[in-house]
Amino acid sequence: MTYVDLILVLDSTVRLATPLIFACLAGLYSERAGIVDIGLEGKLLGAAFGAAVVAAITGSAWAGLFAGVGVSLCMSAIHGFASINLRGNQIISGVALNFLAAGLATFLGQSWFGRGGNTPQLPSGARIPTITLPFANEVQDVPYIGYFYYELISGHSILSYIAFLIVPITAFVLFRTRFGLRLRAVGENPKALDTAGISVTLLRYQALAITGILVGIGGAYLSIAQSAGFTNNMSAGRGYIALAALIFAKWRPWPALATCLLFGFLDALQFRLQGVALPGIGQVPTQAIQALPYVLTIILLAGFIGRAVAPKAAGTPYVKER
């Protein structure tokens, strides 16, 4: 693998990791607040669909982004109503939302556009623009560093830069603000917060709203930044990968970024390694690389490389004492 190859793989790593980072951080907020969100996959898909539909109709990428976030917020609200107000099973609600998004997106897409569930191809104006950083074009011929700056650091979608920006913001909010302290507390011991006169319900809804916004941006990225339109089942398990990454990162923001980049890298590598024989190993089946994130997460969950301990109250509805 040459230097150029390496940079190209890392470049696609960033592109592939972007939706994972959004979804993973989204899951981090809700799970830290004690709400398990299996529905990240469905929210990614729903947001991708909403964004593509509105971008196709209005021709505006920003309207599309708002629509995507809107869809995902609505799904968060249903999840919140079922799991906070009705004290229903959060996992079942998440599973239902995943199917709902998969069914409705294809069904509505087919009846609105009649292209087998896909939305029309978006013109470049209806897509989230990419950013060329200052001097990127000028320095691209400088050996190594110039190309590194031009190809890897510059030229990504605005949303990719936002994804990287949200990591330190999340770390700050979670560990340096009063809201973050309360958020973490409501996921560990909601009763303590309730006793202190803070509304568990409100706090959990706030967390779910943040979740909805973040995963919504991730979904919109899929359909109106990375691609030019919605295709059937375009989330393709990324929500579940993000969930695995969240566990792998033990519900912490910086490790979440690292894990998402690792899983993105594996994804990028998979295309590169097709039909390539590695020295000493031979040809690696692409399926083995596809399964690697899941296998790694299972090994972690089994406690063979450290221990993943979920927020204590995650998954249990809070019942206020009377």
Binding site: A82, I92, S93, A102, G103
Partner: peptide, 12 residues
Amino acid sequence: DMIVTIQALVIL
């Protein structure tokens, strides 16, 4: 896909 939607609503 309408059937998948119904299935989701039933689970919900």
